[in-house]
Design a protein around this nucleic acid. Structure first.
Length: 170
DNA sequence: GCCAACGTTGGC
DNA sequence: GCCAACGTTGGC
């Protein structure tokens, strides 16, 4: 018997993260250059961030927008580390169950990469059969999610970013 | 602003 | 460890 293929070495290299543009938009990230993605308070979303590696491509989705949709791309610059806002009582993201000794939440650093030449509005994406099984369209509440390579390729083509996505991990 | 989906909390 | 109540997300 041939050995089973190794467990997923090729975890997804494409991700999607949601943000409310009123609070933090792709333009905000563009102005900052690099920023920590803090405030994620959902275990599944957190676990996805913990799987990211430097160089992964992140689709930035604007939620609670008119319309909501994918605005462009960011790149992971630093792998997951403790989200210090979780133990700051003054932070909106404070969580009494998280301490510096036992951090419960994580964040990654991302860099602005590109703004799509065309904003990919959610209603438009919903009309595409190829995207019907995208997590974005099926699980409206998951704020950090993997994007499959086929979906990623299509989104990149649709958005025609002014700069191509960098080659990602194999 | 409404409300469906769904994750989390807490009583038992 | 079940599950009802509650809170939040986020599309519309």
């Amino acid at each position: 018997m041939p050995r089973k293929p190794a467990a997923p070495v090729n975890a997804p290299a494409y991700w999607l993260m949601k943000t409310e543009p009123d609070l933090f938009s792709l333009d905000t990230l563009k102005a900052k250059g690099v920023a920590p993605w803090d405030g994620v308070r959902n275990f599944q979303a957190r676990n996805h961030m913990r799987e990211m590696v430097v160089g992964d491509v992140v689709f930035i989705h604007h939620s609670n927008a008119e319309p909501s949709g994918i605005a462009g791309l960011a790149i992971v610059m630093r792998i997951a580390y403790p989200d210090h806002t979780s133990w700051d009582p003054k932070s909106d993201y404070f969580d009494a169950k998280s301490t510096p000794d036992k951090p419960r939440w994580s964040m990654v650093d991302v860099a602005y990469h590109a703004t799509f030449g065309r904003y990919l509005a959610l209603p438009e994406l919903r009309e595409m059969p190829e995207l019907a099984d995208m997590i974005l369209l099926q699980r409206p509440r998951l704020s950090v999610q993997p994007v499959g390579p086929r979906h990623a390729a299509l989104l990149l083509r649709l958005g025609r970013p002014d700069r191509p996505a960098p080659a990602s991990r194999p």
